[in-house]
Design a protein around this nucleic acid. Structure first.
Lengths: 241, 241
DNA sequence: CGCAGTTTTGATAAAGCTCAAGATCTGTGG
DNA sequence: CCACAGATCTTGAGCTTTATCAAAACTGCG
């Protein structure tokens, strides 16, 4: 089980020149590396892209929107494995079947790519293989990093880490529109949704952030220290919105 | 940061025929796949194999003994990323530097292998590349799986999962000699060492295990249910020692 | 406007952490 | 072989954090 956690970052976190093709994205005028090419497919809000135990024939790259990967735990609770942003790849499996479900959060557009063609790519082309390899190592490291933050941290540290990580991945500078609900965040961080809410309130009271609905502004870089995301902090812009 | 969590299982968890060479191990009469070959190096108990921020020139495979990978967190606490058993590989990094330290638990023997030769292997040989690829996917999945158990579980679930996982990896049937201290276990599971102790006591009282020092016997497969390690449970021998 | 879903707040209880002390184990020197 | 010292492990009591249960405020949308 437990696909998805990591692939989120396979493309985004790896070196910007990771894959063979690249396109200019309108967003913030930066280049965005692209692995997959093919016809786009649209999904409505809350549409299921694939379900647990379905054959894992394709991997996907997000073009627009956000996808969450999810499993239902034995006790009936939901665990969110990851949020997949535009440019990010998910659905890569070791086994023949998907180990968790993928659902669109809001209307989304995706590109899909057959798993077996990826195999060929990884085996046949040394450069591509190397880049895929680095991407996987990166995604493993990201999984491990989130693990450490979430396992050892308080609710504040978890949420701070979540906000910083998401802000970074969205290429934003201190102002993000959260696509997901408090429930999603809670199930992602291993907290109760009420605790997520309360922690937002605490952050607001301490002047670390301001919120309007799902829009969050980071007001103080104290939140960076809270998050313990040293690697991100090192590259953080000096001023916040 | 946060190397090590995953490589633990790179060799062991992947398909048994994962790598090109294999040897017969005396242990329990099973075969054990081996990736690395070369001169062995011995380490005393508590010896440091490599330290954080050192150049990551080699990867290692455990021949005998057990290795733990560790980082010191900003608040001074220690986080144990993984325990590496005989046959398992660790030290594979994406960056040029090691992101955590590796220490021998008890006297150990290791084989080392230059990182760059691994690069060549992955890029040049399609079969080997494929196997390394699968190994990494496996290790990612294992990290994610542990993540889910540890993030959402109670102390009992965490410890049960730890015991089951270790028993499985040690190819044991319900009786293991823990190489690591309660402190190590606590820092691995994100618990206080006192909580680990208390949970052992609870398990003993409920007749799930018996202990003598660091030897643990699993007495009831109820501990399997507790652990939620369904994937392992599916392959579990029907009787416990 | 009003409904359904979401977010926030409040009160209470449970789980696990901290501090503290006692018990057990292990290795070492006599 | 025994005694001792240091480390490891266990147990206890109180406290902090977070989950749980409950309800009120807010939001978006038909």
């Amino acid at each position: 089980m437990f696909e998805g956690l990591a692939e989120a970052d396979l493309a985004r976190r790896s070196r910007p020149d990771a894959f063979s093709t690249r396109i200019e994205t309108p967003r913030r005028g930066r280049t965005q590396s692209v692995l997959l090419q093919g016809p786009e497919r649209s999904y409505d809000a809350d549409a299921t892209i694939y379900a647990q135990t379905e054959p894992a024939d394709f991997i996907y790259q997000v073009v627009a929107g956000v996808v969450r990967t999810v499993t239902l735990r034995p006790d009936g609770r939901r665990a969110v494995h990851g949020f997949h942003l535009p440019g990010e790849i998910f659905g890569l499996e070791r086994e023949k079947l998907h180990h968790c479900s993928a659902e669109a959060i809001g209307a989304s557009r995706l590109v899909q790519w057959p798993q077996r063609r990826l195999d060929a790519l990884a085996g046949g082309n040394a450069d591509a293989a190397r880049e895929l390899w680095i991407g996987l190592l990166t995604s493993r490291d990201r999984t491990a990093e989130r693990f450490m933050h979430v396992m050892h941290g308080t609710a504040s540290e978890k949420l701070a880490y979540f906000l910083i990580d998401l802000t970074w991945r969205m290429r934003s500078e201190g102002r993000i529109q959260l696509p997901m609900s408090r429930y999603d965040i809670a199930d992602y961080l291993g907290l109760a949704s009420e605790t997520v809410s309360r922690t937002f309130t605490v952050f607001r009271a301490r002047g670390l952030i301001s919120t309007q609905g799902r829009e969050v502004r980071l007001l103080s870089d104290e939140i960076l220290r809270l998050s313990g995301a040293d690697d991100i902090a090192a590259h953080w812009p000096t001023t916040l919105a």
